[in-house]
């Protein structure tokens, strides 16, 4: 038990270190070679104070990270459980309906939604950007003395919606694919011959056999979600880690770029580590 934990921890550390080195190399290559910048990643002069464009008031890098991190954390807190719940539920239901042709008309919306990943992106960005949170008067009358910061959560929810939509679509497809592979096994025919009906075959046998494979999908949406955040946060002018990354790239500010990208890599590695703790990967 402890050995398994330490093993997974070591693997996660090595993965994060490899990702970190790759990111450093990427930053160095892209800014110096085609970008023609004089600053190198290993030079201390490249890392200065927080540029005024990144923060309204003078901040240290740690405070900036905390502020932006909590903003993105709110979004992720809303997005990740939604994607997992809706993705798994819709995927299982969709696989059940599509496999056994019960109400194939009902299954069509599942299929349609599941096969259009990210199409929300372009349409929603163009429309929602009108409602960006800095517009004066937008929920600005809401004054809460004590209690949760509703305005911050509302803003996070606005960003979370399209991110979650894209993530859900991909997750539905993955879950449905795993279940369809499981129900296409030859022994479902044997079960049918022995007198099991569709529900018994799907929920009693196929779903039960697919549980390890489905558990492996739990950390799958996270890298895609983080990538979506990188695009959608600047679109909504939401001050999170994604905007930090994009603005730092525009300004050519290495600390911002590295902080943001390393924290994304750390999040993804953490998710994979937790999933591998729960569902040990098959021995290669």
């Amino acid at each position: 038990m402890i050995r398994h934990f330490l093993q997974r921890l070591l693997v996660a550390t090595i993965r994060f270190a490899a990702a970190g080195i790759a990111l450093l190399a990427l930053v160095e290559f892209s800014f110096v070679v085609p970008g023609g910048s004089g600053h190198h990643v290993w030079q201390v002069e490249s890392y200065g104070l927080v540029p005024p464009e990144l923060a309204p008031r003078p901040l240290a890098w740690g405070e900036l990270l905390r502020e932006r991190g909590s903003a993105t954390g709110r979004v992720l807190f809303l997005v990740v459980p939604t994607v997992l719940l809706v993705g798994y539920g819709w995927g299982i239901l969709g696989a059940r309906l599509r496999r056994y042709r019960v109400a194939s008309l009902l299954a069509a919306p599942f299929a349609a939604f599941a096969c259009t990943p990210g199409f929300w992106f372009v349409g929603l960005v163009a429309i929602y950007s009108y409602f960006h949170w800095q517009r004066p008067g937008f929920a600005g009358d809401l004054v809460v003395e004590r209690g949760p910061d509703l305005l911050a959560w509302w803003n996070a929810a606005v960003v979370a919606l399209p991110v979650a939509a894209a993530g859900i679509a991909w997750q539905i497809r993955a879950v449905a694919a795993v279940l369809e592979r499981e129900t296409a096994r030859p022994w479902t025919r044997g079960l049918f011959v022995a007198g099991a009906n569709n529900e018994e075959i799907f929920y009693g046998h196929a779903l039960r056999r697919a549980v390890p494979a489905l558990a492996t999908l739990a950390d799958r949406p996270l890298p895609a979600l983080l990538g979506g955040l990188v695009v959608l946060e600047p679109a909504f002018r939401y001050p999170g880690m994604g905007s930090l990354l994009v603005e730092s790239i525009r300004l050519g500010s290495y600390p911002g770029v590295l902080l943001a990208s390393l924290s994304f890599a750390a999040l993804a590695t953490l998710a994979t580590f937790l999933r591998e703790l729960a569902v040990p990967p098959p021995a290669a």
């Binding site: 022994w187 025919r189 044997g190 079960l191 011959v193 007198g195 009906n197």
Partner: peptide, 23 residues
């Protein structure tokens, strides 16, 4: 017909046409 196979009729087929779950 499924109800028939659950009681009054039993089918024993070759492995190729009705494979059993190996696990």
């Amino acid at each position: 017909l499924l109800a028939l196979r659950r009681g009054p009729v039993t089918v024993v087929a070759s492995e190729a046409s009705a494979p059993s779950d190996p696990d």
